[in-house]
């Protein structure tokens, strides 16, 4: 790669290289976005991170590592993210399979319902879930009216509520990568498998499923990482009984005004996210390569 680039770069001193010029133009087009990101995102992020070591020591990190509360919350957050990822995967895979072979109308309807949570504000969506899930909420009342339950099910202000709310928002992040991966599978491969004697379920297990794994990994990585930083949904639907790391960081800032410690926690979260992302990315990359 580099040797090719060098070979091309050598004569370009004498004459203009159209490839270079094109790259420069493209960079120019991306410049405004890069500028906005740099000023409004990267700079504040670096400021925040530097706050965690503002006193010149790693004391803030030591505090985070030694206090079992923070470790426990980080662990809980990962567990919740893992649950959300697993539930999303189980729900999203059949939906993606259906979307790939659905007709035009089915596809539009499916997309509409999938994207609906994106078009609703987080607060509205979350309060709507509270109306549905509460002790005397729509779901509990309906189940009682039908005589299916006697006492209301505890659906709100606990883990169940948090999971329902989070899965609802995050489902599309799982569906789209899987859908895209399924769409990329050459239909002739399924035909070939069928022609060679495979019944439908074996075509699925031996051909469709393995070839869709890159999409599955990508979806899991997305959902897991986004879950890890969730704040509003667990705060409202968890009713204070489910605490995720983002809520803890917010608490440090709002209640104790302990910016350095909040910065340290944020750094830990960011680092954990990056590590998981890199690991999954490596797995996904390998898979995508094998599937090509």
């Amino acid at each position: 790669m580099s040797s090719v680039a060098e070979a091309r770069a050598a004569p370009s001193r004498a004459r203009p290289d159209p490839e270079r010029a094109r790259e420069r133009t493209l960079l120019l087009l991306a410049a405004p976005a890069l500028l906005v990101l740099g000023v409004l995102f990267v700079w504040p992020l670096l400021r925040l991170l530097s706050m965690s070591v503002a006193d010149g020591t790693l004391a803030q990190f030591e505090k985070a590592a030694l206090d079992s509360l923070y470790i426990a919350v980080l662990w809980d957050s990962m567990e919740i993210a893992l649950f959300v990822t697993a539930i999303c995967l189980v729900l999203a895979y059949p939906v993606s399979l259906w979307l790939v072979q659905a007709g035009r109308l089915g596809f539009i309807l499916g997309m509409f319902f999938l994207l609906l949570p994106f078009w609703t504000s987080v607060l509205v969506r979350t309060y709507a879930w509270m109306v549905l899930l509460g002790r005397s909420g729509v779901i509990n009342r309906m189940l009682r009216d039908w005589g299916l339950i006697e006492a209301p099910l505890p659906l709100l202000h606990n883990l169940t509520g948090v999971l329902i709310g989070m899965v609802h928002v995050l489902l599309p992040y799982m569906v789209f990568p899987i859908y895209a991966a399924l769409l990329r599978i050459d239909p002739d491969l399924k035909r070939a498998a069928e022609g060679l004697g495979a019944p439908a379920w074996r075509v699925f297990l031996r051909v469709t499923l393995p070839l869709s794994l890159p999409g599955v990994f990508a979806g899991c990585a997305l959902v897991f990482v986004i879950s890890l930083g969730f704040f509003i949904t667990p705060a409202l639907l968890g009713g204070g009984r489910v605490i995720m790391i983002a809520m803890l960081i917010e608490q440090q800032v709002r209640e104790f005004l302990d910016w350095p410690f909040a910065a340290a926690l944020a750094t830990v979260l960011l680092a954990a996210t990056l590590v998981i992302y890199a690991a999954l990315g490596r797995l996904t990359g390998g898979q995508a390569h094998a599937a090509r």
């Binding site: 050459d186 002739d188 491969l189 035909r191 070939a192 498998a193 069928e194 022609g195 060679l196 004697g197 495979a198 019944p199 031996r206 051909v207 393995p210 070839l211 094998a290 599937a291 090509r292």
Partner: peptide
């Protein structure tokens, strides 16, 4: 009869080899 019961071998235009 469905394809799997026909015992017919086929070579596809793009070969349709299982890439994985």
């Amino acid at each position: 009869a469905p394809p799997r019961q026909r015992d017919v071998g086929m070579v596809f235009q793009n070969y349709a080899l299982f890439p994985h």
